[in-house]
Design a protein around this nucleic acid. Structure first.
Lengths: 216, 216
DNA sequence: ATCAAAATTCAACGAGCGTTGAAAAGTAAA
DNA sequence: TTTACTTTTCAACGCTCGTTGAATTTTGAT
């Protein structure tokens, strides 16, 4: 086949997929290159050939979908601004633009996005080297959303905005981790993989929190 | 010294302290027994002698302070009930009883509690084996608090209570992880180690969220 | 068909891992 | 001071890890 892009990079991508899955489940040190290669159906040396050191493979996995996720969220924010009068976008609409693209990629896509979002949760909770990755991949986007929140809450003290975003980010992170803990605590009334319910309640919850804390 | 309890178990406890610190920072697989022994100033074999396998050491670290933390939180909840009329404890008071004991142990104690709370964050975000530890250590306490929340919000649908607690737990977990991300995003306006500010804003934020979601 | 380049596998390395059994040191009662 | 016991160290084991250089296969243009 001439310039066949549907089959050419199969093994390289399968390494990324397997690494995404396993890193999200067990963390960087909890996974061996041999496990990744085995799940990808590939020799262990191939991961080094394509990606270099183990931490470079991790970085490649983390950055692979970051751009598309940022694009989707920015598009959702732009659409919210378009539908509202200038400078009147509600906090609910901003939070919705931040969260709904996650629901979208989970609903439409294969399980790759599920694993990727769990990987974000892992990195976001990691103190040392995780923060470099978070900043390089998402700081610009988050700053954009926080700017919109400041415009929607013009009287809010600067630090309160960030603390409120911190609450949102933490709740979201635990949602993305899908640990199954809520399933057990609620004895089945809630399910970790029920994203729609998670976001349906999270949006009004967080909006109410923002309004309450960012009043004065 | 006869029956001196201030010096007798020094090395055993130093292993627990070092393991607490390192496990919280780098996770179970991210730390070696040799690093723990080195930080404790002890031979590597001593950890195996006192605690057995590596995962048994981890369990011992995790359970060491769980009982005292549960006692403090239950005492705070009982005090909130005592100060209010029967069945009129506010959501704010319940959340406060859940959070303030964390602030207390951080303020009064050495850095051991700081590391322990970061370890809770690590375990809580861990999908597989983390959930067994969380359930055995904290399910009973959490069920107690959720019972109080249901009493304070009698009209709330059952599943909404659990989702709201999930939001609270996620935001708290990210706070305990102290990743430094909020410091960077806010350019110094907020600090991850400023627990008092974190809890001061979290209590009204979460209470407003509970009220908003648990209306119908 | 030829040939150079890329992709993939093979085989092995040195290092560090958790764990263990035996030796040594410390402790306290008889 | 002997004795029994606990605590700690020492030395080493078998194993798995990430990584690499050479060999092999595949690919795609000529």
């Amino acid at each position: 086949m001439t310039t066949d892009q549907s089959k050419a990079p199969a093994k390289r991508d399968r390494i990324l997929d397997a690494a995404e899955h396993l890193f999200a489940e067990r963390g960087f040190e909890g996974v061996t290159l041999r496990q990744i290669a085995s799940q990808a159906g590939v020799d262990v040396a191939l991961a080094s050939y394509h990606f270099g050191k183990k931490d470079e493979l991790f970085t490649a996995v983390f950055q692979r979908r970051a751009g598309e996720l940022n694009d989707r969220r920015l598009a959702a924010l732009a659409e919210a601004k378009r539908q509202a009068m200038p400078n009147t976008v509600s906090v609910e609409a901003i939070i919705s633009a931040f969260l709904r693209p996650l629901e979208d990629v989970q609903r439409e896509g294969d399980s790759g996005w599920q694993h990727y979002l769990a990987l974000i949760a892992y990195v976001n909770n990691h103190t040392y080297w995780g923060q470099r990755l978070m900043s390089s991949a998402f700081d610009q986007l988050v700053t954009e959303f926080i700017g919109a929140l400041k415009a929607a809450l013009p009287e809010a003290p600067n630090d309160k905005i960030y603390w409120c975003y911190h609450n949102l980010s933490g709740a979201l992170t635990l949602t993305l981790a899908r640990t199954g803990r809520i399933d057990r605590l609620s004895e089945g009334a809630c399910r970790s993989d029920d994203y729609q319910s998670a976001y349906d309640q999270m949006i009004p919850f967080m909006a109410a929190g923002f309004y309450s804390v960012c009043k004065a």
